[in-house]
Write a protein that binds this DNA or RNA. Sequence first.
DNA 1: CTCCAATACGTAGGAACGCTACATGTAGCA
DNA 2: TGCTACATGTAGCGTTCCTACGTATTGGAG
Lengths: 112, 112
Amino acid sequence: MRAEALKGHLDGLLLATLEHGPQHGYAVKEALCDATGGRLDLPTGTVYPALHRLERAGLIKGSWSVVGGRRRRTYELTEQGRRSLAGARDHWQEFAAVMSAALGGGPWPATN
Amino acid sequence: MRAEALKGHLDGLLLATLEHGPQHGYAVKEALCDATGGRLDLPTGTVYPALHRLERAGLIKGSWSVVGGRRRRTYELTEQGRRSLAGARDHWQEFAAVMSAALGGGPWPATN
DNA sequence: CTCCAATACGTAGGAACGCTACATGTAGCA
DNA sequence: TGCTACATGTAGCGTTCCTACGTATTGGAG
């Protein structure tokens, strides 16, 4: 998967992962990997800065804890984050429609 | 549409537009605008550098001409460009599948 | 005749993003 | 002892698209 392809779409993925409940960064990364059958195995250098960015933006809220001797920062969606996730889903629909219209080769990936 | 969303996906769109036949830059921009119902109205400062990039990469081939007193650079797909377009479509399918799997809220945009 | 929009090309500079590479530290197993 | 998995973090880089210009022609509105 091309690196640039993800740009602008990562935030939505992270928010969507946190929608299932509070998670720490490493768990988010693993959850995304699992949800996509290993096709989206993000480097930690991508995940952590993105989470920091989301927290600065007020879309998620983090809190430190220690589990099994390891420190964790657990994040959960804020109300604003929930709204942003809904917006991200809308934007994705829009973007996918535009891409499919312009890229051609079958409007929607049929059954795939 | 968020600016970042397009990153990494523009090349495929340009190649797909040129698949219908040779076009000059401005016409490509207009064609994309039309194909998407005006939802993708790219600035020329995005289109021209992208075409230059594709030409440098050997995916398209340009040639100058003059029509109605205006100089035009008409581009057409190279064989390599055709292969790259096929790859771009595959990558888009893959990417869209990953996004839908992780973003949730209905695997495919249903009937939309 | 003048002005402006549309057509048609171009570049410079900036902002944003994700990745690579590295650093730190714990737990657990061979 | 050494390695892997877990868990977090930052600095710097490369790519990409956008904004804001600049140039030039054609043709229509006023």
